[in-house]
Design a binder for these strands. Sequence first.
RNA 1: GCGAGAGUGGCGGAAUUGGUAGACGCGCAGGACUUAGGAUCCUGUGGGUAACUCCGUGCGGGUUCGAGUCCCGCCUCUCGCACCA
Length: 900
Amino acid sequence: MAKASYPFAEIEAKWQRFWHETGLFRCDTSDTSRPPYYVLTMYPYPSGALHMGHVICYSIGDSVVRYHLMRGENVLTPMGWDSFGLPAENAAIAARVPPAASAKRNIDKMRQQMIRAGWGYDWTREVACSHPGYYKWTQWLFLQFYKAGLAFKKMAPVNWCPSCQTVLANEQVHDSGCERCGTPVEQRDLEQWFFAMSRYAQRLLDGHAKLAGKWPDSVLKMQQEWIGRSEGARLDFTLSAPGTPLDGQGMPVFTTRPDTTYGVTFMAIAPEHPHVEKLLANNPRRAELLDVVKRLRMQSAIERTSEESKKEGIPTGHYVVNPFDASKAEIWVTNYALMHYGTGAVMGVPAHDQRDFLFAREYGIPIKVVIQPEGETLDPDTMPAAYIDPGVQVNSGPFDGMPNEEAKRAMTQYAKDHGVGDFTVSYRLRDWLLSRQRYWGAPIPIVYCDTCGEVPVPEDQLPVELPPNVEFKPTGESPLARCAEFVNATCPKCGGPARRETDTMDTFVDSSWYFLRYVTPRKDDGAFDRALCDAWLPVHQYVGGHEHATMHLIYARFFTMVLHDLGLLAFDEPFERLFCQGMVCAPAYRADCHCLKGTKEPVPEEQVSKHGDGTATRTSDGAPVVLDRQWLRPAEVDIEGLVRKSDGWPVRVEMAKMSKSKFNGVSPDELFEKSGADAVHSYILFVGPADQDVVYTDEGVIGIHRFLNRFWDAVTGWAERLRDVAQPPSAAQPSDPDSRALRRKAHQILKRVTDAFEPPFRFNTAIAGIMELTNELRDRAEKAGHPGAVKEALSLAVQCLAPFAPHICEELWGRLGGAPSIFRNPWPTYDAEAAKEEEIEVPVQVNGKLRSKVLVPAGVEAAALEAAALADERVKGLIAGKTVRRVVVVPGRLVNIVVG
RNA sequence: GCGAGAGUGGCGGAAUUGGUAGACGCGCAGGACUUAGGAUCCUGUGGGUAACUCCGUGCGGGUUCGAGUCCCGCCUCUCGCACCA
């Protein structure tokens, strides 16, 4: 008879119902009889469909949850929805469905998928950040920040996405483009809301000490770079700008190279620098120069990457005075000085900074060498590049002859002593721009009154609710601004007419505290319960993607620190341990073909004329042609010949993260249908280390499905026979070798699986081990003389597999006579004695090359092992007639005989 | 350019951290069975060779009795950051 698959659909439905009805994952946070364990997986954006990225993240989380349940811990395993945000609003604009309605529909759908997937969550704790019962507290938290002076409005040059019609945080700009739509970001001066995150730069850095070894190094490194601490000096130059109000004022700079201060030959300031206008006020070429400045400002984001560090600037005709030697240096407005770092003014030292060097060469600015390398003399006229390595001070007044490393300190000290500078630290981390000119987010709870000015909404008037009916066209202004009933308010202070703030908060604000809300999700007299949070957090294990290294994971840490400092929490790091899963990749097919510009009409390669300047035209009529990169559906590709079926043009294959636009995704639902949730979970954890990218293949899932079938057959085949058999007490070792071998393997694998749950998680080798144990059962169970040993091996195999393939194991556990739920039964105890090898095969090398193997009892003495090796027939033949120079014996490992 | 990580069979990946390279799975080949299934069950499977054996962890050196693992110098790929003074 053709062998049927085990009835996974039936079993999975049965146990999902059972877990739900018995409340397996419901957490009683007041139960202190068991140690708390909080497992958190990053809550998803409710796009409407699970993808494989969710599957890997939530399967990891689920395995950890189940393992810790088996360890007898009180496990908190919540799930919720990051349901505010631009995609929902854009969908609303396109489909004319209110975001709240589409969010609800998507959430309902994804919740069903998650339940079908069998992941264990405490659904009584579900939260959605777009629910007024949630964002009321997001607003409350904003007010706490506001009261503490950590939330404020300021005018600043900001990143503006012209397509999304909103500002973006620094963290949300990638490759000078909008993180969501890729549109090049523009710089605009706007008054916006910020959190004072830069004040926490050092704290965020210091906190890493606590996280070392518990968070992936890569994430800590990325954060460290993002925070960008650099030590240096503030030096106070003085403005010499006769005829302007600035004359005689100070102009401080930040530098990491105070040792080069005598080499300053110009001063570079950012085009956004507040002094620019004043410095040009009396300039005869004022209008012309201001135009250039304007252009430089526009450049900053867009052309920077394309024009690979082309230095540009204009002279202002004014000067600064060097605090060390009173020399004068002209002030230039340049595109490479950044307003948001340091002071926006950079001392130009062309001899010892490559950027300054390029700029100086471009504009004929003098170069002055102040550091000479050992045994060499730099010539300012001929040096091909800035000299940035160590050397000795020259042309540096009293510091001549001093090694420059020493001069850094000495010169800063000098500046400090003379009141013209100090030691200082600069950070790259900027304040968090949190306002968005969009509808679908938590309204910022502020009103503006003509008499009282900016007034926070009183806490008892929260939430400031989103009005349900607004026009959703993006105009650069929040849709809320056109909603009169929302905008018009009364001033909480004077009762007079006032206008509401119409910007909403970045969704990262919502996700910066959701882990606190889960502990008391329905609490209506506070955002969170301090005592319970102190008991349950920091989150014991957090699981999510790397992509949040410098966004969510910094923001959440910042929030937690602030709440700690405000006396609202006892802890200051939100996540004790972090695991970042890899991406799920699959082959994607790409055709690079020439198309008529503005259309998708392909032009055959031989009809394309390419011109030297990168443009191309169609040979026949000179119509412009552009290179178009198209991702193809697998059905469009002849995989064998790797050409596009329609026209036979070559196609490239590329491993890429699954995505809709690349047509290389698979639907988790379909996989659950075909192979079962257990097979999908186990597959995704088996295919490779969970923190590395995995390449998905159908065959792999089928392979695991086959394994689960074999596993099912192995256990059910014995279940009846062994129903009433007791397991052997570990002290009484069975006498027959097969029974002993089974016990040995079973306990070895138990250890391996147990260890796999210690970070870094190694689920792939754990599952491989369970396969080995299953193979061992196949080979030995029938021969084993001790039914107790067989039963023990089967039980251990089922328990070890349970965190990865929970449904099938729950069923098999019952069939072996265990009481449900398997997850309420304690994790088995490892028996080191049973796991010990009895005999081992020791390799014997002659001159480092493997020549033979000897079988010896485990734990054999070095001398006996050496004797056994030398007595080996093959070895004897190889060393006959030669001098044995040395014998290296590593007990239990190998013997190496060195002959000469 | 800077920072991090990775290069092992036809493929995904193992290897107790200096000690039998290729666990486990996929794929492939042969066989058994068949109610034709994404079957199942045996057997084999790094490469060369008839064989003894030899060669094999990106490349070139080195340390060592012994190197995938450590050191030096390269190459390639991936991911971050990218005029940060």
